[in-house]
């Protein structure tokens, strides 16, 4: 029984429902909310230091936004609502995963386009070579025979 308590204690220490983001620890009622919080701050960008997530950033604004996200989770807002709240204010730029729309269509399909173009070029080169090679072989063979 003692051991049982010990391990639950240890488990709670490791996976406590609190999330230590920078300096303010947030406590959640359940692990689902804590998990949602961790995921959200990992996939949202800090606007001040643009190559950091909200989770990583020590900027003042990032702290405020983490607070804001925490409050929204506590008041039962869904992930989509929270993301929309930030996109409405800061634009698609807060998302690390860019959404598919008219301005990002090249970003999403550009690589496939380039890949297809590369394949077509390779096919063309191979075809041209295979057309050239038999001719050359024919020449060589003729040379050998004579």
């Amino acid at each position: 029984m003692r051991f049982h308590y010990f391990f639950t204690g240890l488990f709670n220490l490791l996976f406590a429902f609190s999330v230590n983001a920078a300096d303010v620890p947030f406590t959640f009622d359940n692990e689902t909310d804590a998990e949602r919080y961790r995921n959200l701050v990992e996939e949202l960008r800090c606007l001040v230091c643009q190559n950091q997530t909200l989770a990583d950033s020590g900027a003042d604004l990032a702290q405020d936004l983490r607070n804001e996200i925490y409050q929204m989770i506590q008041t039962g807002r869904s992930n989509d609502e929270i993301v929309d709240f930030l996109v409405d204010r800061y634009g698609d730029f807060v998302l690390y995963r860019p959404p598919l729309n008219t301005t990002t269509i090249l970003l999403w399909f550009g690589p496939f386009l380039i890949f297809t173009a590369a394949i077509l070029i390779v096919i063309r080169i191979i075809r041209r070579q295979s057309m050239e090679v038999p001719e050359q072989q024919g020449m060589e063979n003729r040379g050998k025979h004579s």
Partner: peptide, 13 residues
Amino acid sequence: QDGRLGIDLGVYG
């Protein structure tokens, strides 16, 4: 003071 309106205005710099 707490920057709430700043967030609503998307202020980051």
